[in-house]
Design a protein around this nucleic acid. Structure first.
Lengths: 156, 156
DNA sequence: GTGCTACTTGAAGCCAGCTTCAGGTCAAGG
DNA sequence: CCTTGACCTGAAGCTGGCTTCAAGTAGCAC
């Protein structure tokens, strides 16, 4: 814990790839904690980088911050996730990822059958009612995230 | 176009499953158009139901409203999509769906390799940098939509 | 001590896709 | 005519995950 080992927010931002605004936000949300200089500036321990790597991986998987926080909070003494922790958490997320893939595949199959029929029936079309999982989620339910929706050039 | 064939917003809401607020919103956004009574209330032609079925199907596929509007606008005379229209548009969306499935599968494979190593390396971890497609999309990029993120009970 | 950059804060803004609300109007049945 | 319920509008709110802004302060090199 030599103070010379502490990192500024700019350094953490640079090394982690998260902008400072995100780091401050994560702190407000209780995902990170920092020490402060006498003047009030943030100083980060090196272990925060590993925590941020964990956060990045979770976010990539689509895990929300609430759940990331829960995962981190379950670690004794708020320690940085080690290999075993990561393994346990990622295994549970892996199941979810499988579910999502299944849901998309089912949707694709439904679409395939619809391309042929073109019915768009409110009552019978599989695409219109592609199963309980999606139907449950309300009228505005979307299967795909915004970022994947606008394919930049090729897919139009 | 007998006026007795026109539907009120409540009827359309009931038959389409979209709440009135969504129907009004779609109209503001230029996805639907309506006629009005002398008193200013909306009256819908029956064909709006087919248009709404199209919108529902597109939304289920994750197509954004902008793109749905583009699709509908391309139809001559703003007519309701028929089988051929639906077939053409859904085929282009089908390609995108494939891409999304690919992306998720790649992510899952990356996760699998990570579960074993537990490295969380900022530089080398596949999950941390799961490929250009995701990396391009910025720090907050999420592969999965909010609705799929909180699995109700089982996956925790 | 001077000057520069990096840092601090709270509040507000942004995105999509709606929902909700307040306050008022319409349409139709009795 | 009167009541009742469905409808109207514009504005504001909601979600999540940040970003942006303005105004002020810290830390470090010279």
């Amino acid at each position: 814990m030599d103070t010379r080992d502490l990192l500024t927010i700019g350094e953490v931002a640079h090394r982690s790839g998260f902008p400072p605004s995100a780091l401050r936000y994560y702190e407000r949300e209780g995902l990170l904690h920092t020490t402060r200089t006498s003047g009030g500036q943030r100083r980060y321990e090196r272990s925060v980088l590993r925590r941020l790597a964990f956060i990045r991986a979770a976010r990539t998987l689509g895990v929300g911050l609430d759940e990331v926080r829960e995962g981190l909070d379950q670690l004794p003494d708020g320690r940085t996730p080690n290999k075993a922790d990561w393994s346990r958490l990622s295994r549970s997320w892996r199941g979810r990822l499988d579910e999502q893939i299944q849901a998309l595949v089912a949707l694709r199959d439904g679409l395939d059958s619809c391309i042929g029929c073109g019915c768009l029936s409110l009552q019978r079309c599989r695409l219109y009612n592609p199963g309980d999982r999606v139907a449950e989620l309300g009228p505005g339910a979307r299967l795909l995230p915004p970022m994947l929706r606008r394919t930049p050039a090729e897919g139009v």
